[in-house]
Amino acid sequence: MSIVEVQELRKQYDPPKGVLAVDGVSFDIAQGEIFSLLGPNGAGKSTTISMLSCLLHPSGGDALVDGHSVVTDSQAVKEAIGVVPQDIALYPDMSARENLVFWGKMYGLAGGELQTRVDEVLELITLVDRQKDRLEKFSGGMKRRVNIGVALLHKPRVLYLDEPTVGIDPQSRRSILDGILALRDQGMTILYTTHYMAEAQELSDRIGIVDHGAMIAVGTNDELVKIVGEEAHVDLRVDHYLDGMVERWAQVLGVTKAMIDEDHAVLLVQDANEVLPRLFEAAAAAGSRITEVNVTEPNLEMVFLHLTGRALRE
């Protein structure tokens, strides 16, 4: 059963000629599922979350969250969701506890219930010992944890996390990802946006790949990887003549796509073991020498490359 149903959601700033940030996106999220929106910066992920948070009014389409329309019943939607924004949105001159108490009130909590939930959330984000310290004294990772904790205070049915691991150390990232998986195990539905392929692969039950405001593929990790079939991803560096080499490699038997990514060539090949010797031969024939080879099994990065002709990080 879907708890989030997005139908042809659209956002255009300053219509009719303004930027079309989201172009008819549709997807749904089942109860208790982690659904990731994966795409490069500027793909429309945050705009989509803003509309689902009732922060932005859609230019077209609608979305039902817990059965309520984001267009006509925003109040009910806001009661059902918790939002973790991309940037830390807290009050640095207040302590962790003061922040949680304030935001709890904004979510309608009061009295003993509020204090109990604040205590529970402090336990959950493992900041009980530092609860009286001002946020300005916290590390980036600790602030991120409070940022997430705020959205959990009112026990939302759906949690939106907009790139919550940007700019933090690996240890804090690991802690946050483990926390998200734990929330999913407790039955919470999670909408997660990221431009990190590995995060989407690790966390998600299903993934929607977004580019230029459009949803270009939706499915489980396995389903999406099948789009590129058995093709392997080969990165090659040569000592010179890269442009000419990419053109030659594109003609080699077994190569389905060849392109340049900054200072190296990226190839999609059907069978790396068979194709690699031919690639070396082609380079030698052209007077170039291959200096580095990387072979990667099919993954979401390759799916994105296959669908858009660009690397995910671009």
Binding site: L55, Q75, E79, V83, A89, L90, W103, M106, G108
Partner: peptide
């Protein structure tokens, strides 16, 4: 600018 106002707007507080 700090993002707390947009975040407030995502809460049930009108």
């Amino acid at each position: 600018r700090n993002g707390t106002l947009p975040r407030l707007f995502t809460t049930p507080t009108p």
